[in-house]
Amino acid sequence: MSIFNFFRPAAPKPLSSAVHAKERLQIVMAHERAGRDGPDYLPLLQQELLAVIAKYVDVDQNKVEVKLDRGSDYSTLEVNIELPSSKPEPLRPRITGHGALSGRRS
């Protein structure tokens, strides 16, 4: 800061750009590391799960979501399948399955 800036009113403090940098890096790198460690089995898992469920229920291919979140202590595998509502039963809830995969990321 030079002496000439001294008398100027202080500008409102913007959100630190370094904080953005860290957050963006953590997100992108978690994704990249997940793809790097071992075989990427998620697409296959999704296909097979869908095949099993399709044997019993008529499910929409696009209404299946398989997500893997890797944390430092544990990872979470989230499978989200939306079942079609059929007329006789007015309320058919969304079925959500949660399962924790143990193991640390490397």
Binding site: S16, S17, A18, V19, A21, K22, L25, Q26, M29
Partner: peptide, 16 residues
């Protein structure tokens, strides 16, 4: 620049 929040600090990089 680190003090001004314009640059990742050592801990940030070590964390990642």
């Amino acid at each position: 620049r680190v003090v001004r929040g314009e640059m990742l600090n050592v801990e940030d990089v070590l964390d990642i």
